[in-house]
Amino acid sequence: MSEEKSEVKAIVTPTKLVYQFSAIGSHAEFLKAISEGKLVGERCPSCKKVYCPPRGICPRCGVETPEKVDIDDKGTVTTYCIVRVPSENIDLKLPYCAANILLDRSDMPIMALIQECPAEDVRIGMRVEAIWAPEEDWGPTMENIRYFRPIDEPDVPTEEMGDWY
């Protein structure tokens, strides 16, 4: 009797690790604020840059950042890309636009979706505002902001956007 040897092409080795993340310090304050519909950042005492979301430190200067700053939910597009490829986890109509948005009073762009305009219309310098989820759905998460949409304000020239990074 001859024995057929089949090649092992794949194996499944299930892994499960459970973590309990406790937000502390700046993380906790940011998540608490956003669950009340507010954005909060921190200013570096040394270089004066404002970070939102804050991390409790300035990565440039290596110092703590205790000073709180209220951040607006309006901002300016600093760069963007137009996504034309479907993805398993994202239920959006193609094409859509993901952008870096420099919030007013902050020096660090955040990444968000731009909606309510054709993706092709998005441009660097465009002014946008946050569209929040209904208040009853708010929790300690960035997902409270569903997306940003254009507002009727003149574009900000690149050289006036400031020295963010």
């Binding site: 406790s22 502390i24 310090g25 700046s26 993380h27 409790g56 430190i57 290596g62 110092v63 703590e64």
Partner: peptide
């Protein structure tokens, strides 16, 4: 550690070690 994030822990020990070394950062 319930008061500081990893980054804050790193900042505190790095600042302390560099200071004690006598070398400028």
């Amino acid at each position: 550690e319930s008061e500081r994030t990893e980054v804050q822990m790193v900042l505190s020990v790095v600042t302390d070690a560099v200071e004690k070394s006598g070398l400028p950062k």
